[in-house]
Design a protein around this nucleic acid. Structure first.
Lengths: 230, 230
DNA sequence: TAGTATGCACTTGTATGGAAGTTCAAGAGG
DNA sequence: CCTCTTGAACTTCCATACAAGTGCATACTA
């Protein structure tokens, strides 16, 4: 649904070289700037980022733990290909956690975050009308994070983030038609409304429905980019 | 509920030095052999394992990502203290995922894994009678993994594993009374029965109840080991 | 020609030295 | 006695060199 713009943006103070390489490589892998199946060389990346091999190696290991690259000892490192199976697994895990989040949100949801979520929906409406895909994706991510924080589940979101990457990578393939963002805004609104009403079952159903949108994108893209899939 | 014996056991072929250090340190951190709050030194650990500082550093970074140590640049690395909050967060995430697993298991559960789960319960019964805590913990972990694999959710289990460490660390403090394992076996049996009946709601309730056992262990131990908590 | 060595060019893994930053204690100065 | 400075002793982080393993092309052999 979204690409990782949020965790990409803050070039925090004194970011280590390893963290910088990992952050930038991760973003490129998720938005498919680096193609699935492509070989990555420690030396080449090190030269490109003007650092030594060591921080690059640490970035590779971190990306391997996230399931984004495959480090084969003494052979090489490759960006893992897209996988419908892996995407469905990620969706399953994400839905499990986010459903639990909204269920808890129906019991207690901080008022400040409720207002923030509402204003984010407004901003999404604007971005959708303007056809601003990148902005919309960033706002989408912020909306989900806000739900987690409002329900006091910030830690749970970090667990979602890893899975989200595998969904975003597949979504980066789908062509973003102008009208595709509107329904998503409505779904966000339905989720927030249910939370405000404290209606757990409705909130769960709304979130589940929302996260099932990606299933519709699966059918149409397999053949067009077969070489990117395993 | 359990400590990480499963992922600790296989000293796989050609395991790298970094992986070995991480594996052993992780096990020691989880079973509290290395005390929460203790400082870790790259040099000291390197000397102890007879390797250079580099693989130790990589192990530290990996453990940091799992939330088990805190690497403070240019200052030092410490084992994170126990945290009731962190444990409750881990429990929340784990319950969310495992509840989704058993719900799926009620729809389709491989017969081979059903038999395996049943035999694991038998083995747990034996271990419980014999008072074999370590064996029981290993069987407990295997049971949950078997549920995940039987429901074709192996990937989801790896997401659970990280959270599980934070629960196991707190559970390592609780004194294991001889009769404490019996109810857990019954709970496992209830879960498996519900799955065999295809009764989703009952399976979810049984798993949720099972994973709530740890909440009972929270109250009694805070004061006895206050220095281990943040 | 088919099959088998063999050496080269690549890869990741490890060791080691030094750069940059933090902490803490000892000592100078008020 | 209190405050500030300063330097030694640590820490993690990075750069570099080397070790070890893989794959492939080339050349040699039957």
């Amino acid at each position: 649904m979204t690409i990782a713009l949020l965790e990409t943006s803050p070039p925090r103070m004194q970011e280590s070289a390893a963290a910088r390489v990992e952050r930038e490589l991760r973003a490129s892998i998720i938005d498919l700037t680096i193609r699935p199946g492509e070989r990555l060389s420690e030396s080449e990346i090190a030269e490109r980022f003007q650092v030594s091999r060591q921080p690059v190696r640490e970035a590779f290991i971190a990306l391997m733990r996230q399931g984004l690259v495959d480090v084969q000892p003494q052979r090489g490192t490759v960006v893992v290909k897209l996988s419908v199976r892996r995407m469905l697994d990620a969706r399953f895990i994400r839905e499990a956690i986010e459903v639990a989040i909204v269920r808890r949100a129906c019991e207690r949801f901080d008022a400040h975050y409720r207002d923030r979520a509402a204003s984010l929906i407004e901003a999404q409406e604007t971005a959708a009308r303007a056809g601003d895909h990148l902005g919309f994706q960033r706002l989408d991510s912020l909306f989900h994070i806000t739900l987690a924080e409002g329900a006091d589940c910030a830690e749970a979101w970090s667990a979602v983030e890893m899975q989200k990457a595998h969904m975003d990578r597949v979504c980066a393939l789908t062509l973003h038609s102008p009208g595709s963002m509107g329904p998503l805004v409505d779904q966000h609104r339905a989720i927030l409304n249910a939370i405000e009403d404290g209606d757990g079952e409705r909130a769960v159903a709304a979130m589940s429905h929302h996260l099932s949108e990606i299933l519709r994108a699966v059918a149409g893209l397999d053949l067009a980019h077969a070489e990117l899939f395993e």
